[in-house]
């Protein structure tokens, strides 16, 4: 009865309501375009605001060796963010070297080996790791992990191996440095890579596994020779997304890397990252040139993560599409 009334009120309604689809479509498209506009606006704003430093130093803003914001009688201010860029690359490298194999293992376990009853709670736990705010990793790192790691790993290793290998050399000092930051970042990007890996492994058609098992392969051979190669592109995409997260990670790096502009060979020595450089100095910038140099660094960070995202999405999209074709 109520429905009938509804329908009647419709047929008697004004035509603008009956044909309201055009304004509805325009409204949703306009608001959806805000998302697109936001991305372009962010890029454009940072590009324009960084022009001063880019014209003054060119590529040296990113690859120059000296970062000296304050003008003194002896030296002009100079902006070369290579120490920060190097710190970003090194700490992300440590993070990816640790996280990628572990995450692959987790993905395989969750998708292929885990009993279904365990799979859901374990997936939830791993995804919870991704939801914890990065500042909590920072607080935990400063008060718990750094002292622990210092005592158990950094100090003994730098005193023994470190005397032969320069990049493991001491002094460890407070314990804040590239290695510790990389490990905390690895914990933070594990869930990103692991859950995406699990998803692409689950997309592999069962015929792939059955064929391998039917010719007498063990479970592991099935996974390693038939399932993983099939979703290789997706796994690479997942690792790229993880790398993007590590490169842009700010809070854990700011709290843990020690924020030192000095370039040191050792992984135990303090360094700085691009993101933590921006977080530390932008609000305290001493000149418009300083500000614009920091914005250039942020712009580079935005550009790199954009490229990584594009690549990763293309990879995952390729796997998804390829498998949909294979299944039909």
């Amino acid at each position: 009865m109520a429905k009938q009334q509804h329908a009647e009120s419709w047929s008697n309604g004004k035509s603008v309501f009956r044909h309201g689809d055009v304004p509805f479509r325009i409204g949703t498209v306009v608001l959806a375009s805000c998302v697109v506009a936001l991305v372009f606006a962010m890029g454009a704003i940072m590009f324009l605001s960084s022009s001063e430093a880019r014209t003054a130093f060119g590529w040296d803003v990113l690859f120059g060796q000296v970062w000296n914001p304050v003008a003194t009688e002896l030296s002009e201010p100079e902006f070369g963010a290579w120490p920060a860029v190097r710190g970003t690359l090194l700490s992300s490298l440590v993070a990816i070297v640790i996280a990628a194999p572990l995450a692959l293992g987790i993905g395989i376990f969750l998708a292929e080996l885990c009993p279904p009853k365990l799979s859901t709670p374990l997936s939830f736990l791993v995804e919870l790791l991704a939801a914890i705010p990065s500042v909590i990793y920072g607080v935990w790192g400063v008060f718990v992990f750094v002292p622990f790691f210092n005592q158990v790993f950094s100090t003994p290793v730098s005193e023994t191996l470190g005397t032969y290998i320069p990049w493991l050399a001491g002094p460890v000092a407070t314990g804040r440095g590239v290695m510790v930051t990389g490990i905390i970042m690895a914990i933070m990007i594990l869930p990103t890579i692991a859950s995406l890996t699990r998803d692409v492994l689950r997309l592999v058609p069962n015929t792939q596994r059955e064929a391998m098992l039917s010719i007498g392969a063990t479970r592991w051979e099935t996974i390693w020779l038939a399932v993983v190669p099939y979703s290789r592109a997706g796994i690479i995409g997942a690792v790229m997304l993880g790398l993007g997260r590590a490169l842009g990670e700010t809070m854990a790096a700011t709290l843990l890397i020690g924020n030192s502009q000095r370039i040191s060979e050792s992984l135990f020595a303090p360094a700085t990252t691009a993101a933590s450089l921006v977080a530390n100095e932008l609000t305290n910038s001493v000149s418009s040139l300083h500000e614009s140099a920091l914005i250039t660094v942020a712009f580079a960070l935005f550009g790199i993560t954009l490229v990584l995202n594009l690549g990763a999405r293309l990879m995952i999209w390729y796997v998804d599409r390829g498998m949909a074709g294979g299944r039909s």
Partner: peptide, 22 residues
């Protein structure tokens, strides 16, 4: 639109801060 969404969620959070700072 979907891709731009992914770019936004993948870009470092500090970048959002820098843009609003400017």
């Amino acid at each position: 639109v979907r891709f731009c969404c992914d770019v936004l969620s993948g870009s470092p959070s500090i970048v959002a801060g820098v843009v609003i700072y400017i």
